[in-house]
Nucleic acid binder design. Structure first.
Lengths: 346, 346
DNA sequence: TGGGGTTACGCAATCGTTTTCGTGTTGACA
DNA sequence: TGTCAACACGAAAACGATTGCGTAACCCCA
């Protein structure tokens, strides 16, 4: 086993100083051609690679980006990561991942772990618990120490940093407009409680679409799901609610759900109750994922372009890190959504 | 903006030496109680945190694990990562992610990028292209430099390192046995070409199960899918093949697929052709994911316990890093599979 | 022969931390 | 009063790399 070779070892071996070796490897003309080629040959032979940690210490930059997300077993987030990773790699950066599992404490710990020199900047999506507690001290502290943050999807408006968001309201509006225009009159909404920002915005989009088409919203058609750590329970509860809703409101002919799981759940129940999809029941979901694509029938969705979000976030962060952009100026990039028509809409 | 405070700054401020500050913070009794509390109070006030990079350089360990996977937008891999992350975090390690996108070159680049001091060890699943080329020099070099590797799922047997694998053969056997025992007589197999190790093993399991139940395998019931970078095309081709197969072999009453997407695809076509599932067509898939769980009807699957795989991999790597285990001894851990019975089996 | 310029290298500081080894100042004891 | 231990602290090396500056050795020319 040959351990990694260092400048010092090369220097000793060739009987020159460390600085000579360093300069020779960087092809400094301060060093004679003779020595240069000798050193370079030796380095190549021993497969010399500069130690990243030492470089990081010296340069005060790690060329590494920290990404903190609520969960990774999630189509949207993993897509965002792949976007981040691709862009970061292209620009010579590594990506280090922290999972908050939607927990405030884990988010804080992860940030603190990484903020002590391990990374140059953060890309993150805020944990639900954090949004609920509205305790943002860890973000402020990080930014205060001069470490840039880019927030995506679940952002905190009051924090001064770059942001990349989906146009949730407009996306929902598109979805609901599609339902209305294809003939739906009574459209149910399955959304989350309002403290989840994106849920709130998507609800607003639903309401605006109705308004624009002169349809009076009915509170009785809206289900606001209480999220649960245990998804099983959450979905079971939702199933009962949807079932009850469909039993009570026979006129429902369209459903808009703020995520695909809610939509799939609704579809399952609707099919069980004998609805024909899309003939007498149309369904559209926000968030395009595998479930939608491969469901039977396949679900029409609003795609968030997650990969693009990730790539954009990385671009913004790296631009800031490399000072290609004004340090004090924060931007909010809006990624537009696309309606993907599949088999649950007419 | 207050930049991070260092030992040197504290030392200057309190008019003591750097070493005194360091010792005081580590509560060395070499330092008087007076000085100790003074330093500690000051450090707390200024929120001092030791610089990780400097520590890494000094300690020659980064407390970071490099994970290289073929893709992240994939239920299995993201679950493995969540397992790795959890275990790693518990033991004070960070996780840095590299994606190979199934490409040999990207795998090599990622490994080289991380192997220069950024991490203490690797956990990885080999890219398909690498398996095809059978070029493993980058793994050998890494191991040779004294950096431990743990391979999971897609492993290279000839390389001496720790491995965590799924019991692919036994898992498939379980699945096919289930089909047979529930009354299926003519079971089709949808698998991958043999160079993908796991595809091969799963095919073997299928064959063994048939053999044990005294059923003669028929080559005409087996589809070996040629994988394609473009999943759309791969699935479209597969759809045609399955359709042709079902048309030709009317006696088929069971399908075993080596992943859930193949199974879902088969199910879709079977349903279209009027098969009743599970009454006259049963289906089981290897790999348990969201698709299976939320498909209608929900798919019976073989679960690989991906989170456990990740956690186990992390445990093995960290144990080696912390020398809790013999450096020269390599183990192969087999994670057993579980049959999850849902609605596509009787 | 002495001064100036060039060449080719080494020294030492630096990044932030830990740790070993001195060392000056006490106080106690013979 | 001389000796020695204990105490409290500082200097310096080390991790691996980069870089500004100093300088020895040489040549050239006046």
């Amino acid at each position: 086993m040959k351990r990694k070779v260092t400048l010092k070892q090369i220097a000793k071996e060739l009987d020159v100083s460390v600085s000579t070796v360093s300069k020779a490897l960087r092809n400094s003309k301060e060093i004679s051609l003779d020595t240069r080629s000798k050193v370079q040959a030796f380095a190549k032979l021993y497969n010399y690679r500069p130690n990243n940690i030492a470089l990081s210490l010296k340069n005060k930059r790690t060329k590494t980006i920290g990404v903190i997300i609520p969960e990774i077993v999630h189509h949207f987030f993993s897509k965002v990561i792949s976007g981040i990773e691709k862009e970061a790699n292209n620009r010579g950066y590594n990506v280090i991942i922290g999972l908050s599992n939607e927990s405030f404490d884990k988010e804080v710990i992860n940030i603190e772990m990484l903020a002590n020199g391990s990374i140059d900047g953060f890309i993150l999506s805020v944990a639900k618990e954090t949004l609920l507690l509205q305790d943002y001290h860890h973000f402020y502290e990080t930014i205060n120490q001069g470490m840039p943050i880019v927030m995506f999807d679940r952002v905190v408006n009051e924090i001064a940093c770059d942001k990349v968001v989906v146009d949730d309201k407009l996306g929902s509006k598109k979805a609901v407009a599609k339902l209305i225009e294809s003939g739906c009159q009574n459209i149910a909404l399955i959304t989350t409680k309002d403290y989840v920002n994106v849920g709130k915005l998507r609800t607003q989009g639903y309401l605006e679409a109705l308004e624009e088409h002169k349809i009076d919203p009915k509170a009785s058609l809206i289900i606001k799901v209480e999220e649960n750590k245990d998804k099983e329970i959450e979905i079971e509860t939702l199933e009962k609610e949807i079932s009850a809703l469909l039993d009570k409101e026979k006129s429902i002919d369209g459903i808009f759900a703020v995520n695909e799981l809610y939509a799939i759940t609704a579809m399952k129940i609707a099919i069980n109750k004998g609805y024909k999809i899309p003939e007498n029941m149309s369904i559209v979901a926000f968030t395009d994922g595998v479930l939608s694509k491969h469901a039977i029938p396949s679900l029409s969705t609003i795609s968030q372009h997650a990969v693009e979000m990730g790539a954009k976030s990385a671009t913004m962060l790296i631009d800031k890190l490399e000072e290609l952009v004004d340090e004090e100026k924060y931007q909010t990039e809006v990624i537009s959504t696309t309606l993907i028509e599949r088999d649950t809409t007419r």
